[in-house]
Write a protein that binds this DNA or RNA. Structure first.
Lengths: 192, 192, 192, 192
DNA sequence: GATGAATGAGAGTTCATTCAT
DNA sequence: AATGAATGAACTCTCATTCAT
């Protein structure tokens, strides 16, 4: 009995809401996903969502808080390191890994930037994009090298979003993207 | 009298709707922009919008049709050329230029991908992304080189979106991005 | 040239509006038919309709005026006759004939009574129904006979509306309905 | 306190919507009745209607489902009987009775046929009209007799709709109509 | 004899949110 | 921990109608 679906669901409703919400947000975008839809898919009422979360925005904020912790930690760690090339490589390596884990969250971010901007988390996200760029870029180097640093970041994103279905193995693709990104950052570093 | 605001506006309402709509869509996203808002900013009624466009989607579709023509032409041209490195460089050069012109449209596309996917134009857009990648990528080369081609495209986008406010002169930034992109494609080409 | 479609249409726009309007009103009902639809089918603008008719209601009123004249005349004629059985038979005969001619109008009336009631013509129509009943019914006869008179009228209607597609020849059906109606009225008459 | 208006209304809102809706639909027709009107008369918001019914059409469908059950049962019963004259008489008798009960629904049907046709229930209704005719009519008899069967049905309708205000007692009128209808069917039966 | 452009009113519908139970 | 019932605000869209040209 304790393993019946109903039983297993006891107590983890909050988690299930987050899961289903992210799923739908990724599928359809934030605004086009209604609380009714989320509730229906969970077979609970809308009011139940409000027991667990104060607002719709709260749901997505909570998902972000859980899934972006690795990035926050990465940034914190990197800021404590000396700005060597090796550090930068490690940043890319770990960032790429995080993306593998929270892939759908990243996809959501990528595809819903307009929405994010209005949400409080928008700032958060923009913040770490800037911080990451700051960590990677060769200060005071030529403009092209600064572009390379940003491009390295975007290459990782592109690797996740646009190359996944093109080729076979997702992991292989991720590694290829990481290699290209590392390459870019290395070029930028040597030029300086 | 013939130069009064009302007079000057005669006959260009359709154009003005497109302009204001794009402006707001870029600012706030497609779904968060209501027809009421557009109408109010134009000082006409909602019904007037419906005189000129059949639906809300129609408005954005028409804006796209006007502003993406350069890209369509670019693709058509490139497909008729031999797939040399020089052709590829020219593609990037012209693509970068188009983005300078229709900058806000590109920003809209970038930031509203989730929305676009549901819209009919979503397909169109995805189509030309694929076609561009196809034109640029070194067929049958190593995976990393394929990544480089996609990355080149994304570098141009990144140059437009994320580096504009960072540095001073937008045009200079655009050119730097173009240089990096060209670099990437050249590497990919030589390796093959 | 004078026989080109455009040429032939000159001057009979008013008539064409009436035709198309009736056609659509019958097909879809009065409220569900919009002036846009009528205009589109005629390949003119809505404003053109307003050149010929003051309001939407005006269109249908004008159609009625044209097509119900035979009925008005029938009533006028009947009122001048002695109320013999033969007169009554003649009334049914001519009413049945009118229905054959203005069939679609009758169908419209039958199917849009709720609408008619709000329209000014609603009264008109109700009026002649009462007048016809008055002409047919055997005053002061038993209730059943009064029912028979109304029923005779309805039989004609039923013959037009519900039996048309059931059997082959519409004309044959009409005549059968007329026969039954005449029968009913005869019974009612003899009883008195 | 527990008998205050607000209290009493708890839980029967759905029913109240159906009642008020039918009332207004009968009064004004389906299309001319807006949800705003229904809501206002109930002193709730439009949104409350949508809590109980998915669409406007849904409201009327639900009313139909409730009120046409007697007819469905009548048809089912009749189909199980031998097609004797006595059965047919019983069908008319019970049909006439049903009409007394759901009188307003019948009036609505009669006066909004154009609307019904577009609604899903239109088919339902047409179906039972055909089934009733099928049950009553003397197969392979002369055309006039078939007309008589349909006419019998219409006589009942006419008795309800057009004779109610003419004479005093509605019940008396209904019985008179039933008598005439039975007469018609008997004639048709004997001829065969 | 007709059009192009617009309006005001209102339709049906959906949303995030609330609150007593 | 969750529901049933409801709200208010907003939405996209359609309609009959007007009027200068």
């Amino acid at each position: 009995m304790s393993s019946s679906t109903t039983q297993r669901r006891r107590g983890d409703t909050r988690q299930r809401i987050q899961d289903v919400a992210l799923e739908l947000f990724v599928e359809q975008g934030y605004e086009k996903t209604s609380l009714r839809e989320i509730a229906e898919r969970l077979e609970v009422t809308k009011a139940a969502l409000y027991y667990h979360f104060k607002t719709k925005e709260d749901i997505i904020v909570s998902v972000f808080e859980d899934l972006t912790r690795p990035i926050d930690e990465l940034i914190a760690w990197a800021e404590a390191q000396p700005p060597t090339l090796e550090t930068k490589r490690e940043v890319l390596r770990r960032y790429s890994e995080s993306m593998g884990a929270g892939a759908s969250l990243f996809r959501f971010m990528q595809e819903n930037q307009a929405t994010m901007r209005e949400l409080t988390i928008g700032e958060t996200m923009k913040d770490w994009m800037s911080q990451l760029v700051e960590l990677l870029r060769t200060q005071d180097g030529p403009l092209t090298d600064q572009v390379r640093c940003v491009s390295a970041l975007f290459t990782l994103h592109a690797g996740m979003m646009y190359l996944q279905h093109v080729d076979g193995d997702p992991e292989e693709t991720r590694l290829a993207a990481l290699e290209v990104a590392t390459d870019l950052i290395t070029q930028a570093h040597h030029a300086a």
